[in-house]
């Protein structure tokens, strides 16, 4: 483990313990340490700035209310991202009930049709915008596997168990997602 990782973990541990004693300022620091990473992950899943904002806020509020359950030895982010991921999937299911989001996006598959909206203000580089447009243009089922693998570093078994799909399906979806992104973004490699 690198020096900075050790230091960060040590600091995070103290912040978790202080938060467990009701210190909202310590929790404020935890928010600032993790919000960008969490936002990127949830936006990757949902593809909507507004929904992401709501889910991230909700996740932090729930995390604070249940902070006693966090084991400081395991760190804060894995627990926080599990809360947020569940909230995000509730959101996806709601959307899918309204209309078949999955099938609609399956037809889409076109980065030109994606509007990043307020997300653009968090991306100062045209190539970053292109990356997120290409990512968002993928159907949810491919995108989610890709995001869980690349943003959250989950292995195939963990992704499969979470999404309730066999590891072989994780493999094939990830393969398709990568193939698609390589075609779309080959000049950025």
């Amino acid at each position: 483990m690198t020096v900075e990782n050790k230091e960060t973990k040590k600091q995070e541990r103290r912040l978790i313990e202080a938060s467990q004693n009701g210190d909202t300022k310590a929790f404020g620091l935890l928010i600032r340490m993790h919000q960008k990473r969490l936002f990127r992950f949830i936006y990757g899943l949902l593809g909507s700035f507004d929904m992401t904002e709501d889910v991230v806020q909700d996740a932090f509020v729930r995390a604070f209310k249940a902070i006693d359950r966090v084991n400081p030895d395991y760190g804060f982010y894995p627990w926080l991202s599990t809360i947020a991921r569940n909230l995000a999937y509730n959101q996806i299911r709601k959307e899918e009930k309204k209309e078949s989001l999955d099938s609609l996006q399956e037809v889409g598959f076109d980065p030109q049709s994606v509007a990043l909206g307020p997300m653009e203000s968090l991306l100062n580089d045209e190539n970053k915008k292109r990356f997120f447009e290409a990512l968002q243009s993928m159907p949810v089922k491919y995108r989610s596997v890709f995001v869980l693998r690349h943003f959250e570093d989950m292995d195939y078994a963990a992704i499969g168990s979470y999404l309730k799909i066999p590891p072989g399906t994780v493999d094939s979806r990830l393969y398709r997602a990568r193939k698609y992104l390589l075609e779309q973004l080959k000049e950025l490699l």
Binding site: F39, R40, D125, N127, K128, L135, F151
Partner: peptide, 9 residues
Amino acid sequence: MVERKSRLD
């Protein structure tokens, strides 16, 4: 590329 381009500013 994903590591570089997915970082929020």
